[in-house]
Amino acid sequence: MFPTPIQKRPRAAQITYQTLVPLALILWLLPLLAVGLFSIRPLSDFTNGNYWGMPSSFEFFTNYGKVFFESDMPRYLLNSLLITVPTVIGAVALSCMTGFALGIYRFRGNLLIFFMFIAGNFVPFQILMVPVRDLTVNMGLYDTKIGLVLFHIAFQTGFCTLFMRNFIRALPYELIEAARVEGIAEWRIFWYIVLPLMRPAIAALAVLIFTFIWNDYFWAVVLTQGPDAQPVTAGITSFNSQFVAQYHLMSAGSIVAALPPVIMFFAMQKHFIAGLTLGAVK
């Protein structure tokens, strides 16, 4: 193990380390802690210039209550959910199939198609912006959730295919050969043999895509504009102009907007990290 385990070092070093870690963490999360503190302050603290002292009163419920009951925030949150969940389902479903095709079969152009997915996944969004916006407008889907969902599914299929194909490659190939010898139809091999083995990959991808899509901002501004379809990342700017300079409410609003992926991460940590670090170890 590197560096040398702290247990093998002198007692003094151990104690230093154990105090250093929490201190470093506080320093690391300082900007976030500041926002957390802002979000429970009353308005009067800001007008009195009491930014960093003890809050003069604890206004957690008032501030967060305002976010939920006196703004469009719940609508934006719902939109985000209605955009994110279908995208996750769509992208994972499509990539299970493409990953299966590219991972199991040998045919001409296999690697070419695979590399097309990878390359497309790396391009800057801006090169797609004008044509995709035009396409969405022409389909009558501008400023709708479905327009955003369709694009997200298509784009995420690139990354998901990379992920799924490599995962399927690592499965024992003998299993599929054995099934073929038994005369099982190809689609049954997919449905009854490969798909059940892909469960961990599906879980990992689902959490990752959930986070990516929930946090998307660029496409939200390009393809939507009002509270009818805008997700929370775009909605937060209108929220902030509603409560301009009221830092306690803006802070509470951003925390609420950021929370769902955070909860997702802590609940599904193992899958999340497994997905993110796929390929970091050989």
């Binding site: 499509l94 199939m97 493409t98 095709a101 590219l102 079969y105 391009v123 797609l128 004008v130 690139g158």
Partner: peptide, 28 residues
């Protein structure tokens, strides 16, 4: 079946990706 199966499995994903990602690059 060894040619048709992968084609069928690829079709929806490739179609989506082509329409929304590959073709727009050239359109730009």
């Amino acid at each position: 079946r060894m040619t048709i199966t992968p084609l069928l499995f690829l079709a929806p994903g490739v179609l989506f990706f082509a329409v929304y990602v590959i073709i727009p690059i050239f359109q730009s």
